[in-house]
Amino acid sequence: MTQFSSRNQALAQSLSDILGERIASMTEHCGQLTVEIPRDHWLDAAWLLRDEPGLAFEQLLDLCGVDYLGYGDDEWETAEATGTGFSRAADELGPGRFSWEERPEAGEIQNRFAAVVHLLSLKHNRRLRIRCYAPDNEFPVLPSLIEVWNSVNWYEREAFDLYGIVFEGHPDLRRIMTDYGFIGHPFRKDFPLIGNVTVRYDEDKGRVVYEPVEIEPRVTVARVVRRDSRYVDEKLEGTGS
């Protein structure tokens, strides 16, 4: 238990004492603890997190879905400089550059969908992030936390609507953000940024009609990943002037 900073030491200790083998992994980044919990323990770990006095996370502040498809991908070769001339600019169907018809096939990746929860303990004045990956990419299902924290209700509806993660045991899992009768889950990485249908009022028909989108996908800046020493090794310091 030495790999955590002093302010998280106590929390990490009580987490591993109480949750035990329910924890798949525990990491710290930017001074914040993240605990990964397997699907099978998601619900009973939640009860413990709320009710054990040593943890006492009374409040669930936030739950959101994450789609890890394309994590770390870039559109622009930076490591090998300009060896191939100027034709290296982004012209492929990168993130946000494809339409509904051209949407890329989601390849086989492990743990594509996850639900990330932010908890707050008022008693101990500390926060915790817990994450649970949905085992099946085709039909991601997770247990609902609604019995543990009632506030999760709309957050789970949102994650279902935008990512298609199904929460088992949620009493009212309807779409919340998108239109009535919407098809698809818009925040998935293989859903086009421009959407698939537009809606307008048709004078002749006297009603609202849905049509395929006409706008061109236009993402002006290429996605670039730079891992050279300037960005990684050197600690960025604000010395001011």
Partner: peptide, 22 residues
């Protein structure tokens, strides 16, 4: 709140905004 995941790129991988009114 703002929950930010970066994969090292010049664009965020995921931004989630925790709005109190929600």
């Amino acid at each position: 709140g703002c929950y930010l995941i970066s994969d090292g790129a010049n664009k965020p991988f995921r931004v989630h905004l925790r709005a109190p009114g929600y």
